[in-house]
């Protein structure tokens, strides 16, 4: 069992993760179709006015007022930091890249260990902030079920156990086993749970046209 978790299950989880995401991309393109109608022609872009640097910065800053930065600046910062580090930290981690180099012969570069450790701590703090919102904010509480706590745990657990392992808190063997297990759990659950927003954020907001899409949107739902 232990050998299985530390050996084959690592590869299995990575394969499920990648194939799962590919399956979801495939499903998305099956469920949507190319827009039949052309977009109405956009008016000719106006010649941009010459702006001083000060005016340019002011106009960028005022554009932020139309975003979540205006309604909830704290969460906007926390969630941006959380999501960026969620990807970057494990990807450029010495502990991971050593293992990857051992099995593939090649890996990405690694950040200094103390930096990675600090970033891990920041992810944990962001996780605590999400937990706090869920526990105490009425509007989040109104839509929270046990499932949300479980998914938050699945997202945070690899960082918590990784942090413990790095600091050699508790029994290292057990902690690293838990780390690997929770890491695998997270990878496997991403394509099939609400963590799937990692992929679908891009599909929904770049491919489907709508008031808030980032591009004009080339596809629409078939149903």
């Amino acid at each position: 069992m232990l050998d299985f978790i530390q050996g084959p299950l690592v590869s299995i989880s990575i394969v499920v993760f990648i194939l799962g995401l590919l399956f979801q991309v495939f499903q998305f393109f099956r469920l949507t179709r190319k827009k039949e109608w052309g977009n109405p022609p956009l008016p000719q872009p106006m010649k941009p006015e010459k702006k001083t640097i000060g005016q340019q910065i002011a106009s960028w800053l005022s554009a932020l007022n139309g975003t979540l930065w205006k309604t909830d600046p704290v969460l906007t910062v926390v969630t941006s930091v959380f999501h960026i580090l969620l990807i970057i930290t494990p990807l450029f981690l010495l502990g991971h890249n050593t293992l990857i180099r051992l099995s593939c012969g090649w890996s990405l570069f690694s950040l200094p260990e103390s930096l990675s450790d600090g970033l891990t701590l920041i992810v944990l703090i962001c996780g605590a902030y999400f937990l706090g919102r869920r526990l105490f904010l009425a509007r989040v509480k109104a839509i929270t079920t046990a499932y949300d706590y479980i998914m938050l745990l699945i997202a945070i657990a690899p960082f918590l156990t990784g942090f413990f392992a790095y600091h050699q808190w508790f029994d290292y063997e057990t902690v690293i086993l838990l780390h690997i297990l929770t890491g695998e759990l997270m990878l496997i659950s991403i394509p099939f749970t609400k963590l799937g927003h990692m992929l679908f954020f891009f599909l929904y907001r770049f491919f489907i046209g709508g008031e808030y899409s980032f591009l004009r949107g080339s596809r629409s739902w078939s149903w």
């Binding site: 309604t71 969460l75 929270t144 609400k194 799937g196 679908f200 929904y204």
Partner: peptide
């Protein structure tokens, strides 16, 4: 069933974050 491909994905991918409230 006819629209579950889209609707169940929407329901499933909601992060339950409440950012849409305001």
């Amino acid at each position: 069933n006819r629209r579950k491909g889209k609707m169940k994905r929407f329901l499933s991918h909601c992060a339950h974050c409440s950012l849409c409230a305001e």
